[in-house]
Design a protein around this nucleic acid. Structure first.
Lengths: 233, 233
DNA sequence: TAGTGGTCTAGACCACGGT
DNA sequence: CCGTGGTCTAGACCACTAA
């Protein structure tokens, strides 16, 4: 405690976390106010503030003006999922990335897609199906709709060379996005594409993005059997 | 720019994000250094630093000493998943939470659990099966192993009243955790418990936690068909 | 209304890492 | 080496909110 030489915000962070872990401060307990902690630990209040702010963001503390800082009673753990471009995810594991464009068509969207993106049924959209491979094996089947109204440049992109996902990342930044995960059964067609059998359990990721309420894209990403998404908490 | 009245770190954050979104600053571009931005926006360098630090944490910027700050070329999106206690997740949606303990037994773990937790095959563990309900319907089936060596107090807990998950949150804080998500098929037993049919696609969440390399618990959480986990990005 | 966290400032020094 | 971000400090004022 007082004997520590280094008094940077990280050491304060770690010290507070230690006291929580050792149950010196229990869930629900009020901890000393910033000024007191700063005195105890021999640093400026701003330093303590930085440490406690991060701990609150990590879910370990609840802070409220006037009420003080308390150890979270139900430490909501926040898993941070990095959602990289698929190519980088595969290459990052040392596998060879492959990509195949299966279909592109320009047409009006299905009612479901309209609802997702919040666009009219007459929207001009690009429908893209593609397959991503890892070491030559099917890895993920992507079905995507892109709003041509919002991103007109997409019609000039060569989507046989660069995946729609990657093109969009570079050319159409979004301001808002939704992502969801679930489990589904492979249909006949999906099974064929992913080289598995109908009825196999597939991990499904659905993403929709907007630029200031203008729908950009809605995608359905179906991963081959055996896929696991993981993270540290 | 100069006309803005409010110059807090959030306005700097938003202004920089705006310049990225409007492609005034494109992926890979170097942006002005902190001192320059502080001058431009009429605030202290610390304020700019705070804003840019958050943007870097959000994945929009890459920052390196001496090399300066650049717009991220592949904006890795970070989805923040809140992993609350199941009871709160259900109650938070306004549904009635129910819980039933199916089985507890004290025994040595399976080889798979040993591998997950990194413990010996002779460990003293508690094996717990339970079912969580939302509005009376099966919601999640939990199968959990808890190390009695690491958390001896668990044997005195009344797990018919409080779920092991919730008990652990209150009494056994962890320092490290893994979480993974995948899709599996329901077995006969699992189908019966979740009141569905064998072969249904189920969303599986697996969690393992440690306290300084001492394994605490490993859990397999099987969600009823139709479960979707989602998040904003 | 008063106490607590939230933030800003100006200045300083440090640490990393291009050149 | 030396420029850039990373951090600390002391002090100040503000904003929220419990009492």
């Amino acid at each position: 405690m007082s004997a520590s030489e280094q008094t940077n915000w990280q050491s304060v962070h770690d010290e507070v976390l230690r006291r929580i872990h050792t149950r010196e401060w229990k869930p629900g307990d009020q901890i000393p106010k910033e000024v007191e902690l700063a005195e105890q630990l021999g640093c400026a209040r701003a330093t303590v503030n930085r440490a406690l702010r991060e701990l609150a963001a990590e879910g370990f503390l609840d802070r409220r003006r006037k009420a003080g800082t308390r150890v979270a009673t139900h430490p909501v753990r926040r898993a941070k999922l990095d959602i990289p471009v698929i190519r980088l995810e595969i290459e990052g594991r040392g596998q060879k990335y492959g990509y195949g464009l299966l279909l592109t068509e320009r047409r009006t969207p299905t009612p479901e897609i309209c609802a997702n993106l919040g666009v009219s049924a007459k929207s001009d959209m690009l429908h893209i199906s593609s397959l991503h491979l890892a070491d030559g094996k099917p890895y993920m089947f992507e079905e995507r709709w892109v709003s041509i109204d919002t991103v007109p440049e997409i019609v000039d992109a060569d989507l046989s060379k660069i995946s729609a996902n990657e093109w969009l990342v570079l050319h159409a930044p979004y301001t808002k996005g939704d992502i969801s995960f679930s489990a589904v059964l492979a249909s006949e067609l999906e099974a064929k594409i992913l080289r598995t059998h109908a009825g196999a359990p597939l991990f499904l990721m659905e993403r929709t993005t907007w630029e200031n309420d203008a729908g950009i894209t809605s995608a359905r990403l179906l991963f081959a059997p055996g896929y696991r998404m993981h993270s540290a908490i």
